[in-house]
Amino acid sequence: MRGLAINVGANTNEPGFRARIDAYGQFDFIPIPESEPTRADAHAPTYGELDDALDWPVDVADVRDVPTHLDPEFDGYPFCEGYTYGDEHGVKARPILELSGGDFLFFYATLSTGDERPGWQPPEWGAFVIGHFRLARDPLPGETYREAAEATRDVFANNAHVKRETFDAEVLVQGDAWGSERYDVAVPLSTRTAGVDANRLVTELSADSGKGPWWRRPLRLDEAATREWLDIGDTAAFDRCFDG
């Protein structure tokens, strides 16, 4: 069993703001904008439509009519129908393609912290794990998807890359319904002191050094690290993010 963590979601470049995390660790996932045309028979929800469906602590007025690239797809989140993810960028697609069915794909995002943040959150912003998939099958290369049977293609019909006029994903991933989830409480990857500083989940448990812009890179996890990442959401284990 292996794990991989990748960065997703709104950021200060796209669409110009981050989602927020509150003092209790609760958050709402906000996707990036859709950068490509969507098929006429498919729908990419706008920020305004998501804002109406979620209790967001952010102002989306400037992008209310902008379509979103809603990926990953978490079952139970508005406009989602299951657990799927696609990526057209080799820097993420290549390590994802190294995974197998039963492995875990973690998703982390940079989130803004409030003025009344608790001591475990860094000032201004930090990187936090927001959910994971347990892979229901081996990752599907883009070329394989194009030639796949209808039943396989149907699994990914609601994925943002499949909705594009030109399908461009280098990889598609399906999470199983019993081992995949969007977290209720986000798990910190940054230290208490600064968002740019990685805590031990990165520096000790992943293959990444935690130096430079680590919060933009895929983080590879071996079996032991994957198990600890899965367990760290438990309250009793939460302090191990920082203390070892």
Rank of each mutant, 00 (worst) to 15 (best):
L4A: 01
V8F: 02
A10N: 12
G16Q: 07
D22F: 13
Y24L: 15
Q26Y: 05
F27Q: 11
F29P: 13
A40Y: 09
A42T: 13
A42I: 07
H43K: 15
T46E: 01
Y47V: 08
A53K: 13
L54Y: 07
P57V: 00
V63G: 02
V63W: 13
V66I: 13
L70A: 08
P72H: 09
E73K: 09
P78C: 06
T84V: 09
E88D: 15
P95C: 03
I96N: 10
E98M: 14
G102A: 12
F104D: 08
F106R: 15
A109F: 02
L111C: 04
G114K: 10
P123N: 00
W125A: 09
V129Q: 06
P141G: 01
E143R: 14
E150D: 15
K163T: 02
R164N: 12
V171E: 06
D176S: 05
D176T: 08
W178Q: 15
V185E: 12
P188S: 01
L189I: 06
A194C: 04
A194S: 15
G195E: 08
G195H: 05
R200I: 09
R200Y: 03
E204A: 09
A207S: 15
D208N: 14
K211Y: 10
K211G: 11
G212K: 00
W214V: 03
T226N: 14
D231V: 03
I232P: 06
A237S: 10
F238S: 07
F238T: 03
D243W: 08
